[in-house]
Design a protein around this nucleic acid. Sequence first.
DNA 1: AACGGGGCCAACCGCCGGGAG
DNA 2: GCTCCCGGCGGTTGGCCCCGT
Length: 220
Amino acid sequence: MRSPAAATIRTRTRTKNNVGTPCCSKVGLKKGPWTPQEDELLANYINKEGEGRWRTLPKQAGLLRCGKSCRLRWMNYLRPSVKRGQIAPDEEDLILRLHRLLGNRWSLIAGRIPGRTDNEIKNYWNTHLSKKLIGQGIDPRTHKPLNPDQPSPSPSTGHLKAASSSSMGNKDNYYQGIETKSSNEEEGDEDINCCSTTDDVLSSFLNSLINEEAFEFRQV
DNA sequence: AACGGGGCCAACCGCCGGGAG
DNA sequence: GCTCCCGGCGGTTGGCCCCGT
């Protein structure tokens, strides 16, 4: 069912590592839905040995799957922290606001919503929220009115505009926004290169954006 | 009851970035 | 600096299920 257009895009020249390493297409490896037995093998192994070393994990665990497949199954389904069931209205609201800020950065969005996976959020967006926005006359990619005559619901602050205009893959503006904000916040602070510090900066930056957005919504 | 269409979601695919050697 | 390996990511697909006809 893969579309010709997508196939064309995918024919981009391979660069370094992918040459001759078919991963999941490797002969003899199982594909498709996971059985309860496979789930049990994977969960037992990870509970005993911990996450990581995905390449060698299938063999060690006695699974006929590629490492990527195991990782995906664990991350999206078997991990104890994964929350199953309906997306709550407040989660939906958060997804909408984060998507407006971050675009299709599903893993970043998922990182702000405890228990939800990037795959789940991506699916929910594609099946529910994008249609909902279209129904409201809003372009789900830009969060701007489909009809340009309508007033724009987009944020009014400068860095929010930059971030929202970065929707759908323009990472440059997004990171620019992060960097601008974090460098301001870090004035006179030490060691912005420490990873935990940058994580904190990113986290507080997102919080501030979310809170600003919430503030704006209240004002409207 | 049979069939077709659409929705939903788990899983796959291929690319990219970072770390190690 | 270069190459290789691995994990992670986002886009897309395949197939099951439900609902309407």
